[in-house]
Every structure is written in structure tokens, then in C-alpha cells.
Amino acid sequence: MADHFRIAREHGLLTIRDGLVPGHQALSRLGAARDAGVQAIWDLSHYHRNQDPVRCARIASEAALAVNGNEKLWLCPVNEPSLYPMIAGMPRHEAVEMAVLMAKVARDHHPDVGILTNDPITGVGERQFEATDAIVSAVDVDVVGVNYYPHTARTSLVKVLLATWRRYRKPIMVSETSWHDGHPIHHRRYPGLNKGGWLRHVLEQVDIAVFHGAVVARVCWYPIVDCPPWHRPFSGDRWSHGLIRSDLSVDPNLSVELSALRFRAAA
């Protein structure tokens, strides 16, 4: 984690998404982020059945107090609740209920908790918003996350961001996006692009949405580290969708684009 955070910081990335799911050592992970000088948004459940969501939220909150005092704790209680029926075998309504419960428990045990929702919102149809609607109606959500990838997009990111902003009137975050070098649909839909080109495209779409009135807080490249295929988690293979490779080298196209963004921000 220290190496990953160091490389992220070197590219101007000071906020990251990571996990405090059951089985992770909360104190050590929180400490690693603190020592690296990055702010984290922590997932509490990521495609698995959390057998004790109350305990999970309490441990994360109490560990954050121990490591960072009263500093704001950012949580994404459940990653992509709409996909839980397909991936975790948990009905969507149970995933939503788990997200609401963990958000409330975290706020019972920590004085300053920010809540991010995130779900695949790739179009503007009503079903796209069902899980987010349910969470927002039950919890005071701070930021609404939109997960948007090249292979699942049904309409432009501009339309998605504007529809989401008008629906909730809360800050929007592109909470997941990335480019997979080996994904044929990415190359078919967006010929000639690479990771750097996709990031430019996303930021251009964000700028247009902001021009038309949307409040967009952040864009998260996810994952930042190349990881094994979802369906073969113990494989030695890595999907090429991150900045950081398994040998700690970096993707040159994304690295150059991030460095250029950092330079323009500094100027």
C-alpha cells in the first residue's frame, strides 16, 4: 500500500478509494493512508455478503477515530448495490438495506462521516437510479457516485451527469471509470483511444456538464492498480486498466496525462 500511495501522490492523486471490508486490518490500512498523506474513501462491502454489517461499520468508525481523531471519515457503504444479485447473490433490496444500516451505524460511532453512494449509472432510464433513490431517501448522502465505463455506457457521460444532478441536487462524483487496454468493446466504441485518451474524454464530458450547471466533485480512476480478472482472483494475470502495474511500473499514457493535469493545476 505504501508504494501504491507513493506513486499516486507522485501523479498528484491525493484522494483514493480503497477498502475496509471484513478481513482487512482497519488500523493498519487507515495508518498507511495517513502516513502517505492521502485521503481515502473506504468501501465497507464490495461484492460479498457482509455477515455482520453493524460490527463492520463500528470497527471502521472506531479505528478511524483512533488513527485520525475527528477528521472526516469518508465511506462508501456498499459498492454497486444494483449488481449484488448477479455477483454476490444478495437481492438488491438487501444490499440497499445493508448500505443504509452501515451508514447509520458509522454515524452513531463517529462524529463526522461523509457518505458516497456508487452504482452503474450508464444511461438515463428510471431503473438506472433505483438503488441510489432508495439510499438517498433513507440517509443523508453527501455525494452521489456514478460508475461509467466504455463497455457499459448507454449514452454520453454529459447526459448521465446532468440527469443525476437534476434528480438529486447533490454533488456528483464519477466514482469509477477506466480504460482496459485488452477490452475489445473499448477499442470498438472508441477507436484510437488509450488510458490517457479516455481520461481526457471523461474530463471533457465533465467540463461540459459543469458548464450546464451540474456540480461534479471528483473523478476516480478505478482501479488505480492493475488487478486479476474478477472471475479469477488468484490468477497471476492482470487486467491492464490501472496506472500502477504489478511490478510498480506505470502505464505511460495515463502517467503522462495525469502529469499534464498536475502541471496545468499548478500553473
Rank of each mutant, 00 (worst) to 15 (best):
A40V: 09
T164F: 00
G197Y: 04
I244S: 11
H212A: 01
A106E: 07
A134G: 04
V78F: 01
T122M: 11
G213I: 02
A106N: 12
T152P: 10
P85L: 13
L75T: 08
C227W: 14
R9K: 08
A95D: 05
I16C: 02
S246M: 07
I185L: 10
L258A: 10
A134Y: 10
D3A: 10
L73H: 06
M86L: 14
V256L: 13
A267C: 07
K72A: 11
P111C: 03
K72G: 05
K170F: 00
R218I: 02
V141Y: 10
A88R: 01
A40Q: 06
A26P: 04
E62P: 03
V158M: 03
E94R: 08
D142W: 11
M102P: 15
E204H: 02
Y148H: 09
A267K: 02
P85A: 10
V215D: 12
L83D: 14
S156C: 02
S156T: 00
V206G: 04
G125R: 11
V139G: 09
W42Y: 15
D52V: 12
E130Q: 12
V67T: 07
A57T: 13
C56S: 12
H110D: 09
W179C: 09
R92W: 07
G89A: 10
P81R: 13
A40F: 05
N70C: 07
R245W: 00
P191K: 04
V250N: 14
I16A: 05
I135F: 01
I87F: 11
N194F: 04
V206D: 04
G37E: 03
H241Y: 12
L75S: 08
D108R: 15
D207A: 15
G236I: 12
G31T: 08
A163T: 03
S246G: 04
P85D: 08
V54N: 03
S246D: 14
H241N: 13
G197Q: 03
A66I: 00
